[in-house]
Design a protein around this nucleic acid. Structure first.
Lengths: 183, 183
DNA sequence: AGGGTATGAATGAACG
DNA sequence: CGTTCATTCATACCCT
């Protein structure tokens, strides 16, 4: 019952803790459902500095992880793609949010009400250390570091003036121009 | 961890129920709970045609809405993602429900079919007119190594499968040397 | 008191 | 690589 020819079927691992909400978690089998061990290993690899594994690396990782459950090379490939992209996205967003904090306590209610955000932002500093234990393979897959850093600096400080926040001037009611002038 | 949250705690979801631990009591800190004003503005924006705000737009919206309460960029991002997805989902369900007139498989171009619903759910037929006041992203190119790799993996997954994997690497037990010796 | 629903959040897969 | 789509998990809220 668990297994179909297509593989990928049913694994109750994920919902387990939360009460499985509908216990029959498996239901649609279509996409890879990584086991916690697989995620753990992948995360560890990522944390060790691996960001864009080469084809060979992907194959080997996939091979190893297949011990824990069904997995294909493309899953590993996608996992790294997504993880990398989302970490960046997260970092970008957090940075901006952090900047926005200062903006909106400009008025007389100087409250500094948003200091709470700063508590967990320490994660944004990516440990860019690249593993050097990876001696068996050409290291050129890590060249992307440079372009990455450059792109991060591409940070536009454009501050278009076509929209004007009048936040600072009058915050008692935010004006909220629903005519979308601010976007 | 790769937890997205910056202002909220909590985790304990899919992969690791082990690490979830306490705090699952969402009551105090958990997920973003938008105020009615925030929802109102977001809905208005959506109704005005905004479906996929750019990063800049997300930031600006978030900044504006922060007047009404705690909010982060990612909340705005998720809100639009979910709202759009669920609108589509709903429409698709309705179509399947009584969409006997057209049996075609391509459902994402539903705009020409099922004109009957326009009257009832005028929202779903909302034109895509978005106030485009900012379009300033130069498109940058990058290597198409990724898609190439992916193609490789697609081939790989249907061809060799399980056999090729454990040839070079002993698979008796995974060894799982997190010191990355195996990659 | 619990079950159903709406919805925030996450992530695998894929596109451009 | 950034962005988008589809699906699922988790939870707040409401209903009976």
């Amino acid at each position: 019952m668990d297994d179909y020819s297509t593989g990928f079927c049913i694994r109750a691992s994920r919902g387990g803790c939360g009460g499985g909400s509908g216990g029959t978690t498996g239901t649609k089998c279509g996409r890879w459902n990584p086991t916690s061990e697989q995620v753990k290993v992948l995360t560890e690899l990522f944390r060790s500095g691996l960001r864009t594994p080469s084809t060979d690396q992907i194959q080997k990782i996939s091979s190893q992880l297949s011990f824990y459950g069904k997995i294909e090379s493309k899953n590993v490939f996608y996992w790294f793609q997504n993880h990398k992209a989302r970490e960046r996205q997260k970092r970008r967003r957090v940075l901006v949010d952090e900047g926005n904090d200062i903006v909106h306590l400009n008025d007389n209610t100087t409250k500094l009400s948003s200091t709470k955000y700063f508590a967990e932002i320490n994660q944004v500093s990516e440990p860019e250390r690249v593993i050097e234990t990876l001696q068996l393979f050409p290291l050129n897959s890590f060249n992307e570091m440079d372009s990455e850093k450059l792109r991060l600096f591409r940070d536009d400080c454009k501050e278009n003036s076509k929209f004007t926040y009048n936040i600072g001037t009058e915050m008692d009611h935010p004006t909220l121009d629903l005519r979308l002038s601010f976007i």
